[in-house]
Design a protein around this nucleic acid. Structure first.
Lengths: 227, 227
DNA sequence: CTCCTTGTTGTCATTATGACGATAAGGGGT
DNA sequence: ACCCCTTATCGTCATAATGACAACAAGGAG
């Protein structure tokens, strides 16, 4: 076996919903190449380290999130020969969906990590370093698609949430408003999407809302419909 | 930049529908490791070669298909440190969907490439070398899912096909029977899924069937439903 | 000419969807 | 205490999509 010189990295599309908007965690690069530009968090895979292990380690380092219960999935691999000016670097992109918890960018080792509105970044193809705009585009599209046929929207929510909070996730990720009454009917009638948790809350104002937690479903039948 | 010793490869899940069954192209390994075992076609990425270029090159080498109009998409990347006993090899898996054309395994350079029933291989987790059973499982599941919301089933068909032939693809990939009448209605009423090509054929026996070709849609609204 | 095979159109009951009206039940202000 | 504002939840109704299946169409084989 002879190996060509090659670097293997993972990059992370870390999404959350804050203030009703889809946001992505970006870092400002402190060193060349692309010094001073925004980029997705990422790093090189260590010898004998599994790809997902690398991704979880990066996630913990960048966000301070203990990472275990965070949803993390592989999106795609980017390997254009010229994608990194330092040499051949192939990057495996992962998508992480995190709830809007306190301690957002605390404990991060990247000097300047911050949450940025995803739509702003998506609208400006030149804002990110490397091919990160494409990676972000693919990651966000993956998230949007998965909300249709999986109960993954709950990954953006705390363990117990209201139907309206769940609707807020859909509206933020899809970028369009949904009818509260039809949404409520759809979610509660889709088998095993959500289960009543027992209590109620008034944290969103108005009439007290029932709390739910995620159900056992892995795919939604029938799926939620976008547009 | 210092690089750890690392090999980068692509493996291909090449699927077709023959005789009403979903089949996958496998090669019998002539050299260790896993000598004599079945494996997915694949090979190492050359320096300065793009990942998809590698996949298309392998596809052409193994199948003799000039490859240009063949549907090819990336599925996932597999990088467990011990997945290859020769050392650290990370593999990017691609899915190829090919029509049931003549010259099936002609011009192949792998000594013994052949079409194998996908269900047989999926049912026997120990038949394939490396982690190729997992790769195949993921590839087939990708194909099954994509038939739901994309017009990709047409990739298994010749340029002009009948609705029944298209139904045969769905039945083979999903492994379940579909009602010919409801299927016909669904396909013809889904906007831009298929367009009438003008002629008819009796190659499947019975009443002459209208020929169609693929429409302009990239996603199906509403999607086809499995089960 | 008749039967056999598959293609295509239709019918009908059930279910899902989208648009909205109406009511429920807290919290805040006076 | 009361009114009002906000959000939650339930219901109604027309329309669209689905699944089950009858019936008819149109070549090919014998």
């Amino acid at each position: 076996m002879d190996f060509e010189p090659l670097g293997l990295a993972t990059d992370l599309v870390i999404l959350t919903v804050r203030d009703g908007r889809l946001q992505v965690l970006l870092i400002r690069r402190g060193i060349p190449p692309y010094q001073g530009r925004w980029a997705l968090p990422g790093g090189f895979v260590r010898p004998d380290e599994d790809l997902e292990t690398t991704a979880r380690r990066e996630l913990a380092e960048e966000t301070g999130l203990s990472a275990e219960r965070i949803h993390l999935e592989q999106v795609a691999t980017y390997g254009a020969p010229d994608r990194d000016p330092r040499g051949r670097v192939v990057s495996v992109a992962y998508l992480a969906l995190v709830p809007d918890l306190p301690a957002p960018v605390a404990g991060s080792d990247a000097a300047s990590a911050s949450w940025v509105d995803a739509t702003d970044v998506l609208d400006d193809a030149g804002r990110l370093a490397f091919d990160h705009h494409r990676i972000l585009t693919d990651g966000v599209e993956r998230a949007r698609a998965k909300l249709e046929y999986s109960p993954l929207a709950t990954a953006f929510c705390p363990p117990e949430f209201t139907i309206s909070e769940l609707r807020g996730v859909y509206e933020a990720v899809w970028g369009l408003p949904l009818d509260p009454r039809n949404f409520h009917r759809k979610v509660t009638k889709t088998p095993d999407f959500v289960e009543p948790a027992g209590g109620t809350t008034t944290r969103d104002g108005g009439r007290p809302a029932q709390l739910f937690h995620r159900g056992a479903a892995t795919t939604l039948h029938p799926p939620m419909t976008r547009g």
